[in-house]
């Protein structure tokens, strides 16, 4: 991985995208155990239906983890100063999530050179599931 330098990045530059395999029930079962988030709405269809949903839904934090992978494949994690997202739509079984992002702003704060990047996750139809930002410290 070659880390981009602050001077090399322009506002608008895209960061490398990342596409995941379609989400299966197995994906959610493994994430349930691995994350420790045992909210039954993600793995128990009876619970999901009782909650008024047609089926189980993916953990929002699974989608945010995909966004995190997209960022850490671009720059090493210790450069991340902040990472935030809004969950905008439910992610369903069969959805294949692609994460994309771009440089929004270049700034300096506390003696560090930073880029503010957009990062969002959309499904195979282009519906945006989560959209957020990250603040990344770079070498000059």
């Amino acid at each position: 991985m070659s880390t981009p330098k602050y001077s090399e990045l322009e506002v608008g530059a895209a960061i490398p995208s990342l596409t995941q395999r379609p989400i299966t029930r197995q994906t959610l079962a493994v994430y349930c155990g691995a994350s420790g988030d045992h909210n039954p709405v993600h793995v128990d269809i009876d619970f999901a239906r009782a909650a008024g949903l047609p089926d189980v839904i993916a953990h929002g934090m699974l989608v945010m983890a995909y966004m995190g992978r997209t960022l850490t494949q671009w720059v090493s994690q210790e450069r991340m100063r902040a990472f935030s997202t809004r969950f905008m739509a439910m992610t369903h079984i069969g959805d294949a999530i692609t994460c994309t992002g771009a440089v929004l702003e270049k700034l300096e704060r506390d003696g560090e050179k930073l880029v503010r990047v957009s990062i969002s996750a959309a499904d195979q139809r282009g519906e945006v599931k989560t959209a957020g930002e990250a603040l990344i410290a770079l070498d000059p």
Partner: peptide, 17 residues
């Protein structure tokens, strides 16, 4: 009530890994 809950937003600030 858990069945009514959705995750709305999530943010992190990091000081080290």
């Amino acid at each position: 009530e858990l069945p009514k809950v959705l995750h709305g937003e999530q943010s992190f600030t990091y000081h080290r890994t």
